[in-house]
Write a protein that binds this DNA or RNA. Structure first.
Lengths: 212, 212
DNA sequence: TAGATTGTTAATCGATTAACAATC
DNA sequence: TAGATTGTTAATCGATTAACAATC
């Protein structure tokens, strides 16, 4: 086992890609895979894969490769996906609704365990079998349902407030989709997605290639 | 004007954040902003902002700051958001449906100009006022409606095929949400979003902090 | 002028790539 | 054993941070 060295964010972000491709490889009935072949399939260099994995331990066999099932089990545990995480979606607008219906979450260890909104027209409705609760019930529900992660899909101006309430109730992970700077205490993890960035950068590159 | 030096992807990805915050600052009636204050609001260092902007020109006044309106106009043009981009969404599932209803696209220069699906139950339906077309109409519609960007929200196994058809029809930008490696020709720009990565990394950090 | 703030160069930091010894 | 492939160290590359001259 490796001593605690800093693992880069870039490495952590690649682990899910490895895991997903390993699952597919396993479905194909392949039992051993080389970093070369795995890299080719994901679009990552073999050296990168070996280095990433080496930050957590020695999972391969020299001269042989990686045992698919064993590597999957290891990555799964490193990512903490072997246990179940209960997630709460705050804001059942278009995006929140789409995420509430996203089946793939289950297959990687996440359960949508609560939905919140502040719109009386939405409260009481069922989405994917889950009742939409009043945002005012956040505090009690976090405890009752052991919610671990809050997904923020409310309008930007309400995002920080929603985060604050989740955090006050004991949620330690925030997955934020509101395009605004969110502040959380040191012991809370925040991951923000900003969808308009990707689209804007496409605009940038398209503009440039059109000119040149 | 600057000579053509390589601009890093990280820089391009921050420009939309600058633009968005400048718009808010403008709405507050502020006419001049320093990199210090802008950085504080976005969560980026002032040096970073100055360096990013300097790769495109000299937009500020020494000892003064940046004129909000002027800087907005410049960033807008750099990003190519001053013109309109027509986007096509391929795959009207939960996510495609949510994106089709996403109003913010309009406000930054994008128009959802076509929706495609291969499900007969969806073809002919209207989403946000736009008719869902048969995927087989891609080729002709790209030309008719001058579609620039294709958004891929189909299941992974169909993603590459959808991309190939869009590209064959002349689309030069792909915004991919399918969690799979996509290949495009050299003259086509690809931006991929992989939502499960963010969630999995949250799981990783939550697991670790629980242990320590 | 003095104070403020930019634009830019130099220093640092971090991540990727290359090379190769270890070993299955 | 010979060939293959890992794990790891060293070299390179790229991005961020620090420092400061220029100048409004």
């Amino acid at each position: 086992m490796k001593s605690k060295v800093e693992v880069s964010k870039a490495t952590v972000d690649r682990l899910p890609l490895y895991f997903r491709m390993l699952r597919q490889i396993q479905n194909e009935g392949i039992e051993i895979i080389s970093s070369e072949e795995l890299g080719r399939r994901i679009g990552v260099t073999p050296e990168q894969i070996r280095k990433d994995l080496a930050s957590f331990g020695e999972f391969g066999k020299k001269g042989v490769g990686y045992y698919v099932q064993e590597l999957m089990r290891n990555i799964n545990e490193i990512l903490g996906l072997h246990r179940n995480w209960n997630i709460a979606i705050v804001g059942v607008g278009h995006l929140g609704w789409a995420l509430a219906n996203y089946r793939s979450f289950n297959s990687i260890g996440f359960t949508v365990a609560a939905l919140f909104d502040n719109d009386p027209a939405k409260i009481g409705q069922y989405v994917n079998g889950i009742e939409v609760l009043d945002i005012d019930c956040v505090e009690e529900t976090v405890k009752e349902r052991d919610l671990h992660i809050g997904v923020i899909t409310v309008p930007s101006r309400m995002a920080q407030l929603a985060v604050d309430r989740l955090v006050a109730a004991g949620v330690k992970g925030i997955w934020n989709f509101a395009p605004v700077l969110i502040k959380v205490p040191e012991d809370v993890w925040l991951v923000s997605e900003d969808l308009s960035v990707g689209l804007s950068s496409l605009s940038y590159y398209l503009s440039r290639s059109a000119k040149e």
